[in-house]
């Protein structure tokens, strides 16, 4: 099915939103306005957006410690995300979660997760629930290359394999688990081949090409919805920034970073849109400017929101 112009411009806008949101977060970090740590998604925007574009609003995702991109792509409000990062009462988690725990139930986002592979069994459970209920929903489980070496990854893929669960395991292979290159941590070159061990198709996709990600995920989501079971997709991509705010990136070269930046997923998509006469430079520029305003509004909303209430510190431990 050919994508509509409207949908493609939506995808472009979401990618720009993620990029500019993360740049703003980086700026606020450097100003010491954001507490704790933070893992930026810049450079990987095509994966989150391509994947979420293949889902319905009520389908589920689980996300990772590097989760802002998934959250925005699934439809969360940036102002409430920003408020969470600033520890405000109006944040998605009322200041109790911060960057690594943003959840937006209203868009089917079951949550970022601070623990590597933490979301994999949870996503598997959500898919198990869908299968039992026959509700037709599909779950995308985002995780990184590092999570592929956790035991729970293998347990869960096995479960999805035996029970033919409606789930897409989407590995964002950004080449490094914190500092450790995948080739030093992982016995196989392509994580996708691990699907074979669990009778799940494994597919590799160019994670910087949003249309390629969309097509690949769409097919996997279709299989899942038709009751044909899980797919493991490995999206090859790259995080431009360090692992977290304290990472000087001594384990990789500036030249390697430059090579990947030349394959900027947003520029790549912009030229695809213009080359195919889907959008003009002006149209895209207008979107960029509109996003700038949204980011500024998000920041204003967050910074003017009340701080998390200390008197309520013990609220929400139990339901």
């Amino acid at each position: 099915m050919e994508l509509s112009k409207e949908k493609m411009l939506w995808m472009y806008q979401k990618m720009v939103e993620i990029r500019k949101f993360e740049l703003k977060v980086d700026e606020l970090f450097k100003k010491n306005m954001i507490w704790g740590t933070c893992h930026l998604y810049i450079g990987e925007e095509a994966t989150a957006v391509g994947a979420c574009a293949a889902l319905n609003r009520d389908d589920y995702i689980t996300s990772t410690h590097r989760g802002h991109g998934h959250c925005i792509a699934k439809g969360a409000e940036m102002k409430r995300m920003m408020a969470e990062l600033l520890g405000r009462e109006t944040g998605y988690c009322k200041g109790r979660g911060g960057s690594m725990h943003i959840v937006d139930v209203s868009t089917g986002n079951l949550g970022a997760n601070g623990v590597v592979a933490g979301g994999i069994p949870i996503a598997t459970g959500a898919a198990l629930a869908s299968k039992r209920r026959g509700d037709g929903k599909v779950t995308i489980c985002f995780f990184g290359d590092g999570a592929g070496n956790e035991g729970a990854f293998h347990e869960s893929l096995n479960m999805a394999g035996i029970w033919k669960l409606p789930i897409v395991y989407l590995c964002e292979n950004n080449l490094y688990g914190m500092s450790n290159p995948v080739k030093n941590s992982t016995a196989v070159e392509d994580i996708a081949v691990r699907g074979q061990a669990y009778n799940i198709p494994g597919v590799i996709v160019d994670g910087n090409d949003v249309l390629a990600v969309y097509e690949t995920v769409k097919e996997a989501v279709g299989r899942a919805r038709r009751g044909e079971g899980a797919t493991l997709i490995e999206s090859k991509t790259y995080r431009w920034m360090g692992h977290s705010k304290s990472d000087p990136r001594a384990y990789r070269t500036r030249e390697e970073e430059q090579e990947w930046k030349e394959r900027d997923p947003i520029k790549l998509f912009a030229s695809q849109l213009m080359d195919r006469n889907i959008a003009t430079e002006d149209e895209l520029k207008k979107i960029d400017e509109q996003v700038d305003e949204e980011i500024e509004e998000a920041y204003e909303f967050a910074v003017n929101s009340p701080k998390a209430r200390v008197e309520d510190i013990t609220e929400y431990v139990y339901a």
Binding site: Y60, T62, G125, A152
Partner: peptide
């Protein structure tokens, strides 16, 4: 247990 958590969340 993790899948139990996922089932419970939904």
């Amino acid at each position: 247990v993790g899948a139990g958590v996922g089932c419970a969340l939904v």
